[in-house]
Design a protein around this nucleic acid. Structure first.
Lengths: 344, 344
DNA sequence: GCATTTTGCACAATCGTTTGAGCAAGTTAG
DNA sequence: CTAACTTGCTCAAACGATTGTGCAAAATGC
């Protein structure tokens, strides 16, 4: 299978004009450089006829700019991230930018490799939802000239622009809601320890307890991953000692965790909210359609993709890194039927 | 913000060796070209120290090969496609390939543009879940030397390799299951008319009816999109005349359609399966956790990404296009509680 | 001590584009 | 008729890597 090798030069040869002329015409600079209408017409029509495709690689090399943006997400199958990716891709296309997609799979090694790879591709910028446990490699990338925007997760005290949700307040609200309904022993099913969403969410939970003068019990914070399995196994363990532990509610820090929990509870015949109440992070299309309609913390934003791109574009062409303006999206508690009011 | 411009040449100058030498060392060809250990050591350590990143764009230009693969999907927020994307990306990374992601958004114009763009990027191949209504642009791309693999949807009589699910049988099985449970008036909520999954699914539905000597009623096939809203509006209309129409079951041709249906039924207080039975395409993690556990047609395959990539790699370096070997994945009916047995 | 082989690199072309500079031919001004 | 200007292009360098060829200097053989 031989490649369709129509280049500017091959066309130049057959048409008897210079490559310069062709380049200019095809870039719409014909008039500006006084190329005659005849020639312009000639070039455009033959380019069209031959199905000429400019070689973006050559272009990128010459212009030292790839019109390409790297996107690193932990897991594209998580709807939250997928929606992000969709928004970013759509918006990027409007600006004639392409997206390089990398899944880090919540593996810091993969994340580092992905960054190196994207830099090798001379991407004009990177939007990343970092694992969140380390930030040196990100700072290094930023310093070496690759504009960066963090999304969903950020690092305290690190000067990198970010967009995130107000997870702290979201979590506080959710916990407060449980407390208002009489719950005091609330298990917290967490995601990856040390990541900023998890930190914030757990801290929000703690803060709500403190506010209400409920002593914080560290043994109630369990789990270590945002995945389905973590929720499932944590719930199974919890159920074993449910009566003894006197836990009446769960706050789940991620939608996948919640699905795992729901499966486990279903298998064990634990009723929601009669036997156990639950609130979950991450509103989903199906949240209201589950066997018990879920009370969730929603923190998605339709145009989060726009915002991320704008923050990236803002960094282009700036000679010095200005103090980044960060964006924090509000979260909202959506109340449904997964929490029972109990006597306090 | 100035770019980190460490190139092979800048290093050559500071080290006092030739670019050739550096290139060879960094590509692990040092020994082969008899570069002394001292020099190898020198080059590798300084490259490391300076945080040198090879310029893949320059490399791509020289080698006429980009080590990238284009991926065009209708909608990454559809979990089915997201899982596909994840699998492909993971597998591609193993082979040191990068993924260019494009969402076609089920818009043929965007699809065509995406192909042109990917060709401009000199991608080594394209994996695409096409809208499915036109194939000329795909054949053109393939003929012009870009290896192609179709996924999920294909074109009858067009010589392009594809991976798809056995949607016909899946649909037949599902419909047969409904029939076995006494249903005769079965509404079919379809996706985009003319696409191969939709064709196959609707045909499977028809075939099952025929087999059981149930006359086919075209007014029972409704809808025109794989999205949530289509399911929602179709269901709303259906419910209005539910009693009169004597429809007892729905077969939904996509998971998003189904969610829309479930929402509508819930709003209208229509009970599943008591008032209406339903089977749905696309098994999801949450399928069993919905307010009525869904009977679904599962047609996902863990390593579908591997397969797609292998089919693509197989085309690399082949001088002639060989007759493609297509892959059809089996589908499986997962029986849960959304179908009621009725007197027939 | 001379021819031959081995060692250890360097030269320069090349990939397909963009772009500042330049230049011949035609036109206009005075 | 000559100078100045306009028209309509072309030349050639550059971007950063790879790679076939070439060639001194050192080592070895006899």
């Amino acid at each position: 299978m031989k490649k369709n090798n129509i280049t500017i030069q091959s066309m130049a040869k057959t048409l008897g004009v210079s490559v310069t002329t062709i380049s200019r015409v095809l870039n719409g600079l014909g008039e500006q450089f006084r190329i005659s209408k005849r020639t312009i017409e000639l070039v455009t029509t033959t380019a069209d006829k031959l199905n000429y495709r400019p070689n973006n690689i050559a272009k990128g090399l010459r212009l030292k700019k790839s019109s390409t943006i790297g996107l690193i997400l932990p897991d594209i199958t998580n709807t939250w991230f997928a929606q992000l990716a969709l928004g970013i891709e759509k918006e990027a296309r409007k600006h004639h930018y392409n997206i390089f997609l990398c899944n880090s799979n919540d593996d810091i090694k993969v994340e580092k490799k992905s960054i190196a790879l994207l830099q090798s591709w001379m991407v004009d910028g990177i939007i990343i939802a970092p694992i969140g446990l380390e930030s040196e490699h990100l700072q290094k990338a930023s310093k070496s000239g690759t504009p960066l925007v963090l999304i969903d997760r950020f690092f305290e005290g690190v000067n990198l622009p970010y967009i995130s949700s107000n997870d702290f307040e979201g979590s506080m609200d959710a916990t407060q809601y449980l407390i208002n309904n009489g719950h005091k022993k609330i298990a917290c099913f967490q995601g990856i320890v040390g990541t900023s969403p998890n930190n914030q969410r757990v801290n929000g939970y703690k803060q709500a307890l403190k506010k209400n003068k409920i002593p914080f019990d560290p043994t109630l914070v369990i789990g270590d991953d945002f995945g389905f399995n973590n929720g499932y196994t944590c719930a199974k363990k919890l159920i074993k000692h449910l009566a003894k532990s006197k836990i009446t509610a769960i706050i789940s820090m991620g939608n996948q965790i919640t699905l795992g929990v729901l499966k486990a509870l279903k298998e064990e015949g634990v009723q929601i909210p009669n036997d156990l109440s639950i609130v979950s992070f991450d509103e989903q299309e199906y949240s209201e359609l589950l066997y018990t309609p879920l009370t969730t913390v929603s923190h998605m934003n339709e145009n989060i993709g726009d915002v991320a791109l704008k923050m990236l574009f803002n960094q282009f062409g700036k000679s010095t890194r200005i103090k980044p303006k960060n964006v924090v999206l509000n979260s909202k508690l959506i109340i449904r039927d997964s929490v029972k009011k109990i006597a306090s």
